[in-house]
Amino acid sequence: MSDRPLTLPLALLLGLVTVVTLFPVFWILMTAIKPPTDWNAVPAIWVPSEPTLVNFQTLFDPEALGVYGVGGVSEAATQAVFGSLLASIVATALSVGIGLAAAIALSRYSGGGRATPLIILSGRMFPPAAIAVPFVIIFSTIGLIDTYFGLIAIYIAVTLPFSTWMLKSFVDEVPKEVEEAAMLDGLTRVRAHLTVTIPLIKGGLFATTLFIFILNWSEFLFALVLSYTTIETIPVRLAKYVTATAGTLYGVQAALAVLAMVPLVIAGFLIQNHLARGMTFGAVKR
């Protein structure tokens, strides 16, 4: 952390960055409380004159927009919210758990040889679009299509390289001698990893978890091609808010997007103190 004083030019720059960064968030929030007439009005309406919660209502009651004469909204978003929560939470927990074990194995035991981390990463070198269709075929054959089990499996496979690599970099930062000191103090290898290493990479573990959760939470392509009727996620539902009569339901989409932001904002807020680095300072002579 630098102690640079806040000068006027610096303050202006920071202000500008803040405005540019937060403008889309502001627009989404405003759109979410606009009545249908305001959604794509020209000139643009910045702050709605008559704020309404009807867009949020529509998410759970498709008929709600009827009062504004907009009909044909087919389904509620309930299932999508449930689907996103289930797939993202389970896939994130497993991805981070497996990734942590892999990170320790790679960092401390060069598991599988020096090329292993790169081989793991190579899984990310295929564009998702290139592997999506083969997965549809494979999953149809083995009965995993349109199941949460299948979606979660894909999410884990896709995010595991990230979680492994991120966590490996944090484990690498903990000097292995600290673990070894613990072993000489009387711990087994496994207990040294669990009770010495993991507490020291707590910040990294939180950061990785949040990152993987965001990836899963906002994933669209696999969710789209692997779901028919049984499963749905928020990003897929977002794309479906289009009606024949009223076109794209911007307000409803914005309302769902705001809802989707909530868990991320809460999670980010809760762990912000742990995102700081420097946990291992003082362990070793430098």
């Binding site: 001698e177 600290v178 613990a182 000489l184 507490p199 946990m279 300072f281 003082g282 070793v284």
Partner: peptide, 20 residues
């Protein structure tokens, strides 16, 4: 025999104190 059962103490060249 595991390190923990050897009854040896070691001072590492980088000390390796528990930072937390």
């Amino acid at each position: 025999v595991q390190p923990k059962d050897r009854d040896i103490a070691m001072i590492f060249d980088n000390l390796a104190l528990y930072p937390n």
